[in-house]
Design a protein around this nucleic acid. Structure first.
Lengths: 121, 121
DNA sequence: CCCATTGTACGAGAGACATCGTAGTTTGAC
DNA sequence: GTCAAACTACGATGTCTCTCGTACAATGGG
């Protein structure tokens, strides 16, 4: 049955499950961001604006734990993850989140920055 | 040592410990709001604008559990609680939160309302 | 003083979570 | 084919959280 490959995913793609927009729950997003490690990840992603591989984050935890945190963020609908070679790239789902919860992400990021300034110096 | 009673608390007051503004942590606030029950409480408090006693909330849990949730909100710095007779009144710490994290509470409440509309109707 | 109302304290149980270590898979380079 | 790099899967462990039930404390009204 040919034709499957016309719009098929790129060869060798390992797809990761992401929640659709209407499956994203506010409580789940808040829970994902209530962990300091994950909030830091999101802050760095927002600062970068593009995509970052998992290994570019220098988190004070093992790689197993990193994997766990990135998955929580992806399953909450906060980040999008795709494989690129051996790396797994992460990007903020900014448009989706802004559509669902206008202004929320910006407020959260501003609050996080403000707190970092307040606590850090 | 003397004069302790000059500005002593009102007779019979049972004071509750609240975090000072500079002790309120964003992660803790987000965690407090990541529970559906507590998010609902905060939504009702914001809708009312004033103070509500614990018993005015009709939550689908026992009183013990209610007490627990209100305490989590208070210890996170989200609500202020004071005794008034046998009742314990709850009020949003709106000014404190707006000072610390400008716009965050409004965004969160708007997001919660939006999601309620999306899911409920 | 007695009592109803309101909320607390304490303990328990079930489940979720953050963390780790080890072993394994996938990919790209040589 | 071989190898290193990046990431995952699985299990273990200790901690936290949500829930409840029962027993208790504080307040205000007769």
């Amino acid at each position: 049955m040919g034709g499957v490959s016309t719009t098929a995913p790129a060869a060798g793609s390992r797809d990761l499950p992401h929640p659709a927009c209407d499956e994203i729950r506010l409580e789940t997003v808040l829970h994902a961001l209530s962990d300091p490690m994950r909030l830091q990840i999101v802050r760095e992603l927002a600062a970068d604006g593009g995509e970052l591989s998992c290994s570019q984050f220098e988190l004070p935890v093992t790689k197993s734990t990193s994997t766990h945190h990135f998955r929580v963020l992806r399953e909450a609908g906060v980040v999008r993850q795709i494989y690129r070679g051996t790396a797994k790239m992460n990007g903020l789902r900014r448009e989706d989140l802004d559509d669902l919860f206008p202004g929320l992400l910006d407020s959260l990021l501003a609050a996080a920055t403000r707190q970092a300034v307040r606590l850090g110096g």
